[in-house]
Amino acid sequence: MTDDRVLNAYSARAAEYASVLGSIEDTHELDRIRIERWAKQISGPVLDAGCGPGHWTDFLHKRGVNISGVDLVPEFIESARSRFPEASFRVSSVRALDLADGSVGGVLAWYSLIHLAPSELPQVLVEFRRVLRPRGHLLVGFFEGGANELLDHAITKAYCWSVHWTSELLQDAGFEVLDIETRQDHGSRPHAAVAAIARNA
C-alpha cells in the first residue's frame, strides 16, 4: 500500500529531508506569493494536507491564517511541533481525514500527493471535497509531465501528472477548476499548480 511505502521511506529520512527542504527559505519565491495570495481569499479554517516538516503551515499561520497541518509521518509532525510550536499539527492520512464534512474553507496540497499511485488520487480528491465547505478552495501543487509518468525521486516512487488529467479528476471529484499555473525553472522539473473550488452539493 502506498501509505506504508511512503511512511517507511520518509520516517527513515525525515530529519535529512527537514534539514534540506524544511525551511520556507528553501521554497520558490513565486510559490510563496501564490500560496499567500490563495490563502487570503479563504474564509474559515485551512488544512495543510501532507504538511511534511510544517514550513508552509507555519508560513500561513504567521500571516494570520487559521491553519493546521496533517501528515502521515509521525517524525515530520514531531519536528514541526518542535520547530513551529505556535502552529497546530497532527498525524493523519489524507485518505481519511479526521474532520467533519464541510468543516474547512481551504485545503492546501502542495506536492503532498505526488507519491500516490494514479488510481489512488481520485479517492483523496473526493476526501478533500468531503471536508471542504461548498465553494471552499483547494490548491494542488505537483510535478507537471506526461499523465501518470513515473519520475526519479530521492525518497520513494513518485509521479508526474498532466494538468489536463488533474483538472479532469478534480471535476469528477466535485470541483470547479479556477486556474492553472505551469512553470519551468532552469535545472528543475516542470512545476504545475491547479486552484479549484468545491461545487455546491
Rank of each mutant, 00 (worst) to 15 (best):
E75Q: 05
A117R: 15
H137Y: 10
A15H: 10
A87N: 03
A39D: 07
E78M: 08
A117D: 13
R63K: 13
H55D: 10
G54Q: 02
K157H: 02
G44F: 02
R13V: 14
A196Y: 02
A147D: 14
R63G: 10
A9R: 02
Y10R: 07
P134F: 05
D172C: 07
C160H: 12
D3N: 13
A195W: 00
S68E: 09
A39E: 05
P134T: 04
D185S: 08
H191F: 11
E25L: 13
H186L: 15
L97N: 04
S112C: 00
D179L: 07
V65T: 06
E127K: 05
D179H: 03
P45T: 12
L138C: 00
R90S: 15
L99Q: 08
H153P: 06
D185N: 10
S43L: 09
Q123D: 14
L60V: 03
L97E: 05
W110P: 00
D3H: 10
R183G: 04
D172N: 07
L132N: 04
E78H: 10
R83Y: 01
D48M: 03
V126W: 00
T27W: 06
S43A: 14
A80L: 06
S167I: 03
H186Y: 09
P118T: 04
P53V: 01
F175A: 06
F89C: 08
T166L: 15
P45L: 11
S19M: 04
L116E: 09
G22F: 05
M1N: 13
R32Q: 14
R129E: 14
S112A: 03
L151W: 06
F142P: 01
Q123A: 15
S43P: 06
V163H: 04
L170E: 05
G106E: 05
Q41K: 15
E75G: 09
R183V: 13
A109N: 02
A87V: 04
G145P: 09
G146L: 14
G69F: 02
E120C: 08
K62C: 14
E149H: 13
A195K: 11
A12G: 03
G44E: 11
T182N: 10
L132F: 02
Q184K: 11
R83N: 14
S79N: 09
L47H: 09
I67S: 01
G106L: 06
A100S: 13
A198E: 07
A39K: 04
R5V: 12
L151Q: 07
G64Q: 00
L60R: 01
D101G: 08
E168N: 11
S88W: 03
V126A: 13
V124L: 04
E25W: 09
A193S: 12
G69K: 07
A39R: 03
G106F: 02
T2N: 12
H191Q: 09
S19V: 03
P45F: 01
R5L: 14
R63M: 00
A193V: 05
E181G: 00
